[in-house]
């Protein structure tokens, strides 16, 4: 079992040896800490998120990877008693600075959640929601175009173009998740955060979403939390390993899976704990 795992991972890594030549920093975490009330969930995380790359956050459950993801667009603000310390920057601007507006931040850093959560509205309305609230389009024709483009980018257009006004909740799980991705894309964010986007999907739907992520990185910076090692290996250029609230190690994905610096990373990747 393990052998097969390792083999698979290696193949995946080799297949995706992309040389990160002109790397540019999109986001940066500097001694990030997160407290939930008395309990500290994240300890001094330093990390760089590179533009137009997929960064995967991995680690056993409860390691703080989702917490860190949520602090990248301040979704933690909605949780009572949650405090974020340290510094997180987007294009060198501190996103926790008073001058930064959280609404604007989230329009730039979109988010896709673990469980597909389409609004109980039509497919069209789900995608149009973001452009509408932010006033991004001038006319109905504009909006139609944005909806169509977003659905195309999310590789959902062909499946739903004839039933745009059906309920979004009527789609299959994988389609729902791609709808949520289209919904996020429609706002034209710079960064898309994905919190285990495939955990509720079947293998075929997962493959579709993974393909999609790979395409999206041309236009967007993507940070993805995943539970599945293979997925991290398949979709990401960089991988960060979290454990017990600490960032254990971060590096190019191929290096993380073949020759990690830390023993804990090695153990986790080879399935010794998790």
């Amino acid at each position: 079992m393990n052998v097969m795992n390792e083999q698979k991972i290696e193949e995946a890594v080799k297949a995706r040896m992309t040389a990160g030549t002109n790397e540019v920093i999109k986001m940066r975490g500097d001694k990030v800490t997160v407290h939930y009330g008395e309990k500290q969930a994240l300890f001094d995380v330093d990390i760089l998120i590179r533009e137009n790359q997929v960064t995967a956050l991995i680690g056993p459950s409860g390691c703080g990877k989702s917490t860190f993801l949520r602090s990248l667009n301040r979704m933690n603000d909605t949780i009572a008693g949650c405090r974020v310390g340290g510094k997180i920057t987007l294009d060198n601007e501190d996103i926790y600075d008073r001058a930064i507006d959280v609404v604007e931040l989230r329009a730039r850093v979109g988010m896709v959640f673990q469980k597909p959560n389409p609004f109980p509205k039509s497919i069209y309305e789900n995608v149009a929601y973001g452009p509408r609230i932010h006033g991004l389009t001038r006319s109905k024709a504009d909006l139609d175009e944005v909806v169509e483009k977003s659905l195309q980018k999310a590789a959902l257009w062909n499946e739903v173009k004839d039933r745009l006004h059906d309920a979004g909740t009527g789609l299959s799980g994988g389609q729902q998740q791609r709808l949520c991705i289209a919904r996020a894309i429609a706002v034209s964010p710079e960064v898309i955060l994905m919190d285990e986007p495939c955990s509720a999907l079947d293998p075929i739907a997962t493959a579709r979403v993974e393909e999609l992520i790979d395409e999206l990185k041309q236009n967007y910076t993507i940070v993805i939390v995943t539970h599945s090692m293979q997925q991290a290996a398949r979709v990401s250029q960089r991988t960060a390993m979290f454990h017990l609230g600490y960032l254990v190690e971060e590096g190019p994905t191929e290096k993380m899976f073949t020759n990690p610096d830390e023993k804990r990373t090695q153990d986790y990747i080879t399935g010794r704990f998790g």
Binding site: I25, L48, D91, D101, G135, G251
Partner: peptide, 26 residues
């Protein structure tokens, strides 16, 4: 820990600010 040398990488230039009607919305 992490290769801190990476911090010498260039930082992305912020894109042009979009007007998302914040004043009215607030």
């Amino acid at each position: 820990m992490t290769d801190i040398t990476a911090s010498s990488l260039p930082v992305a230039a912020p894109p042009a600010r979009r007007d998302i009607g914040l004043k009215k919305r607030y």
